[in-house]
């Protein structure tokens, strides 16, 4: 199908982009890589008056090391994220999960910032940045603000970003020494996960000292399996991990769709949490 008509601007800087967004109000859409927006436009599920193409703003691209954290430009493509040596060294979970996003051609265009701003709870990366305790930096007419990932996602396809705010970078605390795994369960390679589980584990003396578990597609936003995280602390063997993982679905509200019922998703969340944590902890 064919996108509806819209006006188009291609700002050269973040300031220009923000001004364009502010002028347009609610009817503007930001275009980064377009891998979420273009299908929406083609299916005529979105009718923006104005599309603000931020794809040519160089400062939004790339990864830099800021000591305790990596700063990843919002426009950095999935392909660049997963191959970036800094990301691979300090945020392996993000690299591993990004490898599972869509397919190579989509990863060439799709961007980290775009995926997060799109805020599809079935996306892989929202749960991952939540697990990494990342922060998202947005610029609006009133300047910059930093939003913790756990405050960023509000509802299905909704974030705290105001219509005139642009997501510019993602600050990912280094997770050096943490074990990680992203367990994606989907029916075919291209499909959205029925459930995805991101696990980040710090071990101490053969026990899990601290575990973080993020869930994709278990509610209207990405979620942390906090009950399981608490139960995992101190787990020292696979049985203990399995027991702790039994609480992975607590507090979740998974949806019903042809690929899975809420009940099945809850079950998968438990099984996949067990598997992801075991792999992350090197116990698998």
């Amino acid at each position: 199908m064919i996108p509806p008509a819209f006006d188009y601007v291609r700002p050269a800087s973040v300031d220009e982009a923000v001004r364009a967004l502010a002028d347009a109000g609610e009817d503007a859409k930001v275009l980064a890589g377009g891998q979420s927006l273009l299908p929406l436009l083609r299916l005529r599920l979105a009718f923006p008056e104005l599309v603000v193409d931020v794809g040519r703003i160089p400062e939004l691209r790339g990864v830099r090391d800021e000591g305790d954290a990596l700063v990843i430009g919002a426009l950095t493509t999935h392909h660049d994220v997963m191959h970036d040596p800094l990301v691979r060294r300090h945020a392996g979970l993000l690299a591993a999960a990004t490898e599972t996003v869509a397919d190579p051609a989509v990863r060439h265009r799709g961007t980290l910032g775009g995926s997060l701003a799109h805020a599809d709870p079935a996306g892989d990366l929202p749960a991952v940045v939540l697990t990494l305790d990342a922060e998202l930096v947005a610029v609006g007419p009133n300047g910059r603000r930093t939003i913790p990932a756990r405050e960023f996602f509000v509802d299905y396809l909704q974030t705290v970003l105001a219509p005139d705010e642009l997501l510019v970078e993602v600050r990912v605390p280094k997770a050096d020494g943490w074990g990680f795994h992203y367990e994606k369960f989907h029916r075919v390679a291209q499909a959205w996960p029925i459930v995805g589980v991101a696990a980040l584990v710090r071990r101490d003396n053969g026990h899990i000292a601290e575990a973080r578990v993020g869930l994709s597609n278990m509610g209207s936003t990405p979620l942390r399996a906090t009950a399981a995280e608490q139960a995992l602390a101190g787990a020292g063997d696979p049985d203990a991990v399995a027991r702790a993982a039994e609480s992975a679905a607590e507090g979740t509200r998974p949806s019903q769709d042809p690929s899975g019922s809420p009940e099945y998703r809850a079950h998968l969340a438990r099984v996949l949490t067990k598997r992801a944590v075991l792999t992350a902890a090197g116990m698998g």
């Binding site: 188009y8 275009l31 083609r42 794809g55 392909h79 190579p104 051609a105 989509v106 060439h108 265009r109």
Partner: peptide, 12 residues
């Protein structure tokens, strides 16, 4: 790099 040309605008 490969792209799916149905998901890229000509202006891009």
């Amino acid at each position: 790099a490969t792209v799916k040309s149905c998901s890229v605008l000509a202006v891009q």
